[in-house]
Amino acid sequence: MKLNVKYFGLIAEWMGRSEEQIDLWENSIAALRQQLETNCRRLSNITYQVAVNQKIASEELELSENDEVAILPPFAGG
C-alpha cells in the first residue's frame, strides 16, 4: 500500500524532507516503524509517535491508503 507520510522537526531534518510517499508491505504501525527505521537508523534511538488523521495512533491501528500519517519527534511547545 502507498502512504503519504509527513515528517516534523528533528525527523524532517534527518529524512531531508518534510513529506514523502512510501510503499508499505503491510498495513500495520509496526511495519511502518520498521520501514522508517530501516531507511533512517537513528529513528530507533529516539522515542517518536505516529499520528494518523491527526490523532496519536495506537500500535494496533490498521492503516488505510488515504490516511494522513505523520511521524512526530518529542514535543517542545510552551
Partner: peptide
Amino acid sequence: IKANAPIFGKEVFEDETHVWKEN
C-alpha cells in the same frame, strides 16, 4: 499543551548550530 500539542523547537546557538528541544 506541553504534553499533547505537536509543536517542535529548534534551539539555535549564537554560532547558528542547533539542537532540538524536548519537553
